[in-house]
């Protein structure tokens, strides 16, 4: 079990309470659960890494418990009407929440009495009617204070807590069905959003226009995540498939049938095609984490050519050198 879990680079939680791991390189899927005592109460709703080294996985269940992958139990505090809660990747104490009739709020965990930022509702429409809120997913844009949200009314909003304006600084619409998930690719300026009809689109964050859409899905999207370093996006949802699309040519790269309806997904930081080389893992991983902060198109262009096996090292070294040059 330990060996197979080390191989997996994509983690998924299903509606039947099964934690699933997928190794893209080996094209294998594993179930990490005792199939004899399954129950719908254990439906997995949230997944995140317990520590930066990615050795522990935190699993949030629908009945309010948090399981670590090494079967330790803790309490899960539930807030009302919150559908999504996201932690800022750069400031670990910053947390954004949002839900139905509960606009975006950014909390500082060091001062939990009051929210740091509370979004204001949109202006009333041309009939002077109030517009309803429904935040379905939130993400922090790296390198800035901005936060991007998607709503159940097919809107994408960008909020800027640093500016005095509490209404969104950018409003965009996509399609006509509720948007359920969003994710920010490593190369900035775009956001990937998915809706209940199984459509995923890449929206430009500068003007809010559709840059392209990803095809091949047949059911509503529940989980969407872009790889922290590679130009790929993984999606899962009610059609019981894990799909991995390339962000460059928007083509479907992998498709894995996982038997249950999938609720959430989590990508490992390491290379997707990496077959889980345990030895010498720590080195390249650190390099990538550094890069995740300074997103620069040139660096990503260099990153594409990361291959497998012994060849892999050379481009990474180049990248490091490039970085150094830049710092100089």
């Amino acid at each position: 079990m330990g060996d197979s879990s080390r191989l997996c680079s994509v983690w998924l939680g299903s509606e039947t309470g099964i934690l699933k791991g997928v190794s893209v390189a080996r094209k294998q899927a594993f179930n990490f659960c005792n199939t004899s005592r399954l129950s719908r109460d254990q439906e997995v709703r949230a997944l995140c890494w317990g520590d930066p080294a990615e050795s522990e996985l935190l699993v949030g269940c629908v009945d309010g418990t948090v399981l670590t992958f090494s079967t330790e139990k803790g309490a899960f505090t539930d807030m009302e009407n919150v559908t999504r809660m996201r932690q800022s990747p750069t400031h670990a104490h910053r947390v954004a929440t949002g839900g139905k009739e509960n606009g975006l709020k950014i909390w500082d965990l060091e001062r939990p009495e009051e929210a740091v930022f509370t979004a204001k509702n949109l202006r009333d429409d041309w009939l002077d009617l109030r517009r309803p809120h429904w935040v379905r997913d939130v993400a922090f844009i790296p390198d800035s204070d901005k936060v991007v949200t998607c709503t159940g009314y097919h809107q994408v909003h960008v909020f800027d807590p640093s500016s005095p304006q509490r209404r969104p600084v950018l409003e965009a619409e996509y399609g006509e069905y509720p948007l359920t998930a969003l994710s920010l690719p490593a190369s900035g300026n775009t956001v990937a959003v998915g809706n209940t009809h199984g459509q995923i689109a890449l929206l430009d964050l500068r003007k809010g226009l559709v840059r392209g859409s990803l095809k091949g899905l047949s059911g509503g999207v529940r989980g969407l995540q872009c790889h922290p370093s590679q130009p790929v996006v993984a999606s899962c949802g009610l059609d019981r498939f894990l799909r991995i699309h390339s962000l460059e040519d928007r083509r479907l790269q992998h498709k894995v049938y996982l038997k249950s309806r999938l609720n959430c997904l989590l990508l490992a930081n390491r290379d997707l095609e990496d077959a889980g080389g345990v030895a010498g893992e720590a080195g390249p991983q650190e390099v990538k984490e550094e890069e995740a902060e300074g997103s620069d198109d040139e660096v990503w262009d260099a990153m594409e050519r990361v291959g497998e096996g012994p060849k892999r090292r050379t481009p990474e070294e180049e990248v490091v050198q490039k970085k150094k040059r830049k710092r100089d």
């Binding site: 159940g152 069905y177 509720p178 359920t180 209940t196 009809h197 199984g198 095809k215 091949g216 047949s218 059911g219 509503g220 529940r222 009610l238 059609d239 309806r261």
Partner: peptide, 21 residues
């Protein structure tokens, strides 16, 4: 569609996408 009839906010388990599927 998952859940009872709700064509606006319901989540679809499977949708026929013509010319794609």
């Amino acid at each position: 569609q998952k859940g009872t009839f709700d064509s606006k906010f319901g989540e679809y388990e499977w949708v026929l996408k013509r010319h794609e599927m």
